[in-house]
Design a protein around this nucleic acid. Structure first.
Length: 274
DNA sequence: CTGGGCTCCTGCCCGC
DNA sequence: TGCGGGCAGGAGCCCA
């Protein structure tokens, strides 16, 4: 599933191809994938606008289109944003097609339809609640361990639940929550507020390391994740715990445990993580 | 306010 | 071989 590293890979790949292109036509094959504004308004508004940038905030893809307008794409569980030649056969579950002025198409495909498209000014999307308030970017150099400590100390919930909360830190999902906690040698069910500054420093560094390594490896294709060209990533081959329940811990060899925390399957080592 | 649980949805895997 | 059930999960929403 696309988390920060997967979204970052897509965004970095698309940017040089999309900036400067004009959207000449928009087709919604499954209109309710657009959550704001009404689909007809979305089509009318987006047609003719020129792409000024391609960015990311947490797991959200942000595409400024001029006139203060922002196209927002969230991939949910199974969303794919692909740049293809217009002649390419249309895959099933393709819900939106943006025709560009260079003969290519930006297509949104999402079998499970947990993803969404939004269009509006940033203020409009924030005040309407369609774009949630997000915590800091974990890989931002300005985000330091002390900031993480201050955020964790106020939270009664488990570390796993807090890492998954996009309002605490933006962009971490089930894969990199488990990976970070393993690297930091912290149990996922530890209460966030119970961590010492020293432990939080370790978690801060582990978060950053897990995410940056995954970006270098172009993300994890453990399920349906594909990049903008339809290719898989490589990080799934190097994951320490995610998807490895029952297999030996890379550090101590003990079989990895799997439990359910915050409604998510959670894999960790009972010996290495305290 | 906070945290936990339910819901949406399809594909995949397992067992009969 | 085919089919049904269970499971996976991001995040909005509701409720205690």
């Amino acid at each position: 599933m696309p988390e920060l590293p997967e979204v970052e890979t897509i965004v970095a790949d698309l940017r040089p191809h999309l900036v400067g292109r004009t959207i000449v036509r928009c087709e919604l094959r499954f209109p309710s994938i657009v959550r704001h504004p009404e689909p007809e308004v979305f089509i009318d508004s987006i047609t003719g606008l020129t792409i000024e940038g391609v960015g990311r905030r947490g797991k959200f893809i942000l595409i400024p289109l001029g006139e203060g307008r922002l196209l927002v794409v969230h991939l949910g569980m199974s969303g794919q944003l692909r740049l293809v030649d217009a002649a390419t056969e249309i895959a099933n579950h393709t819900h939106a097609i943006l025709d560009l002025d260079d003969g290519r198409q930006l297509r949104y495909r999402d079998p499970r339809r947990f993803g969404r498209l939004l269009l509006g000014t940033e203020d409009e999307l924030l005040t309407s609640g369609t774009l949630p308030r997000l915590g800091p970017e974990p890989i931002d150099p300005a985000f330091d361990a002390e900031q993480l400590f201050q955020r964790l100390r106020r939270r009664r919930a488990s570390l796993k639940a807090v890492l998954l909360d996009q309002g605490t830190v933006a962009g971490v999902g089930n894969i990199y929550a488990d990976e970070s906690l393993h690297r930091a040698r912290l149990r996922p069910d530890r209460l966030a507020k119970s961590l010492s500054r020293k432990s939080v420093r370790r978690l801060h560094e582990s978060l950053r390391d897990s995410l940056e390594v995954a970006i270098r490896n172009r993300g994890s294709s453990v399920d349906t994740y594909r990049d903008a060209w339809g290719e898989i990533g490589n990080q799934q081959e190097s994951l320490l715990v995610y998807g490895r329940a029952g297999e030996p811990c890379m550090t101590c060899g003990r079989p990895l445990s799997i439990v359910r925390i915050a409604g998510r399957s959670t894999v960790f080592c009972r010996r290495c993580q305290r």
